[in-house]
Design a protein around this nucleic acid. Sequence first.
DNA 1: GCCAACGTTGGC
DNA 2: GCCAACGTTGGC
Length: 159
Amino acid sequence: MPFWLMKSEPAECSIDDAVAAPHATVPWVGVRNFQARNFMRDQMKIGDGVLFYHSSCAVPGIAGVAEVASASYPDSTQFDPSSPYYDAASRPEKPRWYLVDVRARYKVEVFTLAQMRETPELQEMRVLKRGNRLSITPVEPPHWKLLLGRMKRIKTAKA
DNA sequence: GCCAACGTTGGC
DNA sequence: GCCAACGTTGGC
């Protein structure tokens, strides 16, 4: 089963927000990068594992475990002129941006970016490569397995 | 706030 | 199709 790391700014949508959402599920809106879009549109399958990563915040790192919860479909925010993700060049009959729903499974004590960098077995992770800016990256099964073994689950009311 | 890295745009 | 300028990401 394929695995992914998906970055979200917690100020926009944190793991807590995802856990608190109906069915602990959120549409992954706002991706405006073709490579990241292609991963969602062409490769993700329901049930794929997701590392829910917090970026652009005080302590960047993996904050939860989630899963792909839908097939891909057009991101409605691209057609909403009041949305920061509005794309005037995209037509409803030929949408440019697609997303998937992501369901939070559980929250973890943040496994920080610094910890990831300190873990020798994780050095080949794409997200750690210099200059990487992709908000969605594939995760190799050994990396997924190691991280799941090291991360500490936090019990929450939901999910 | 800084800035490296890199994707996108647009002139040619 | 090239490539300079520009904008964005995201850690620090």
